[in-house]
């Protein structure tokens, strides 16, 4: 299987000069294309920190992260912004859509940043909204959508840039069970049918049950890596 994410001995230490906290401690991780991974562990185990480092939102204190053969830990923050734009999709716990834009505009926005042509943008927006089952909400603003619907728009936005993989930080944490199940089904379908790689941190047993690989973190270290 082709490797998409390769993390070598990644460590993240906060408060280095006072009381150091090892949020991530010597993590080695290889993620292949098309995987559907749940990153689990108790609160404070370093799940979000590891996702941020893999996603180029934060730098590790030591170690390297290589995405598709590119060492992103050597990039400047401006280079990282551009790299994220073209390679990584994000789904956040609290949806984080742009409140003043409609569902269509929120999805289209990322493609505008990529300078995608108008026709292509419009086609892709319609396809993505259809895939997440929200074609009838195309002109609704986030405030007019339920939490589950907003998170589905967030998934569509994450996929709009045609990323190498999608990172989702506790994507179902704010959703009711029905919406969570619906969202998981959509992500699993995208993984199955389009081969999209998903890595999500979660506490949610339903998400863990759907995952085909479960990595457990405790005190910043991987304590188990189970493939199903």
């Amino acid at each position: 299987m082709e490797t998409v994410i390769d993390a070598h001995d990644v460590t993240k230490i906060y408060n280095e000069k006072k009381i150091p906290v090892h949020a991530v401690n010597g993590v080695h991780l290889h993620i292949g294309r098309g995987e559907f991974i749940a990153l689990v562990g108790p609160s404070g185990s370093g799940k979000t920190t590891l996702l941020n480092i893999i996603g180029g939102l934060d730098y590790p204190t030591t170690g390297q992260v290589i995405i598709n053969g590119t060492n992103i830990t050597a990039m400047s923050s401006s280079e990282l912004i551009n790299f994220r734009l073209h390679n990584i999709g994000f789904v956040f716990q609290s949806y984080n859509l742009i409140p003043v834009l409609t569902a269509r505009e929120n999805i289209e926005f990322i493609m505008l940043l990529q300078h995608t042509g108008k026709k292509q943008r419009h086609e892709r927006v319609l396809n993505l909204l259809r895939e997440v089952g929200l074609e009838d909400k195309i002109n609704s603003r986030p405030g007019e959508l339920s939490g589950g619907q907003q998170q589905r728009v967030a998934v569509a936005r994450a996929l709009a840039s045609k990323p190498q993989f999608v990172l989702a930080d506790e994507p179902t944490a704010n959703l009711d069970s029905k919406s969570a199940a619906n969202l998981l089904e959509i992500m699993a379908k995208l993984n199955r049918e389009e081969g999209m790689t998903f890595v999500f941190s979660t506490h949610d047993q339903r998400v863990i049950d759907k995952a085909r690989r479960v990595i457990t973190l405790v005190d910043g270290k991987i304590t188990s890596d189970e493939k199903r």
Binding site: I81, N96, I98, I110, S161
Partner: peptide, 14 residues
Amino acid sequence: VREIGMLMAIGMSR
């Protein structure tokens, strides 16, 4: 802050 952070996270340049 969170919204601006999100914009930069998804690839909006500074």
